Simulated assay, not measured.
Amino acid sequence: MLLKDKNAIIYGAAGAVGGAVARAFAREGARVHLTGRRLGALEALAKGIDASGGSARTAEVDALDGRAIAEHLDAVAGEAGTIDVSFNAIGIPQHHLQGTPLTELEAEHFSAPIATYTRSHFLTGREAARRMIAQGSGVILMHTPTPSALGIPLMGGMSPAWAAMESLNRQFSAEWAQHGVRAVCLRTTGMEETGTIDVVFGLHAAAYGISTDEFAAMMSDRTHRKRATTLGELAAAAAFLASDRAAAITGTVANLTGGFVVD
């Protein structure tokens, strides 16, 4: 197992991405600590993981609250001994944030994703690193879609927010890798299995005057494989990158876009 006896913290675990990664980590032997604002959804996920032979714990944690993050990490470390992996998969509602030309976008709608994502990833990364540095090991992971690297219209503040996350990932590595703490970002296409993709694609489809299915097909056609990244592909890559087999990988973005972005 890639992550046997590792302790992995998942922020935003009730979402599609967080849940998929949590299940993959558990299958690889990690004890997963599921956090978010909806305890009921977290408990349902934990029950499924436990029923499949994994180990899951839940906690209501606001990933924008540094004190809450720190207290939870201290509780996990006190019980389990180490903090080995931190994966932040939080999301925010996309209405009014995408699908609007910049010339018509309200300033608060532009700045909201930048402020939210950078604050949350800084706080979860900082608090994890403080404990990982002390133990001499750890991995911090984050996820960004293709607009982080491309000039795509009607993205509002989302593209700058995701680009900032990738920059923050590099800074994490520059400061912490020397202490044994790796930082890696995973970049995907929009994933059609996620519960929010119909909203996101719908906002763009409406702006183009086409159907959601037509917009999804247009996005898939831009990849070399002619299909979107799947949740399973993201989760499998995250498990590998969190493992000791990826020990040389840090300060970079793992390109899982299937050719949408060509490095």
Rank of each mutant, 00 (worst) to 15 (best):
179 H>L: 00
40 G>M: 10
52 S>Q: 15
189 T>E: 00
46 A>K: 13
153 P>S: 07
191 M>R: 04
121 H>Q: 12
36 G>D: 10
128 A>F: 11
23 R>L: 08
146 T>P: 01
31 R>T: 15
60 E>H: 15
108 E>N: 15
164 A>D: 02
37 R>G: 14
163 A>H: 03
79 E>D: 14
133 I>L: 09
214 E>S: 13
158 M>N: 10
169 N>P: 04
155 M>E: 11
39 L>V: 12
24 A>K: 11
189 T>Y: 08
176 W>L: 13
175 E>H: 13
10 I>K: 09
79 E>F: 07
145 P>L: 05
22 A>W: 01
43 E>R: 15
159 S>H: 06
1 M>G: 15
54 G>C: 13
59 A>D: 05
206 A>S: 14
167 S>M: 10
155 M>G: 03
215 F>S: 05
137 S>Y: 03
77 A>C: 05
215 F>D: 06
207 A>V: 06
42 L>R: 13
221 D>Y: 08
109 H>E: 09
54 G>I: 13
120 S>H: 10
114 I>P: 01
63 A>R: 13
139 V>I: 05
92 I>H: 05
207 A>R: 15
87 F>V: 10
3 L>S: 09
97 L>F: 01
19 G>H: 04
94 Q>Y: 13
109 H>I: 00
230 T>E: 01
235 A>L: 03
63 A>L: 05
30 A>N: 05
193 E>R: 04
67 R>N: 09
198 D>F: 07
209 G>K: 13
176 W>D: 00
215 F>L: 12
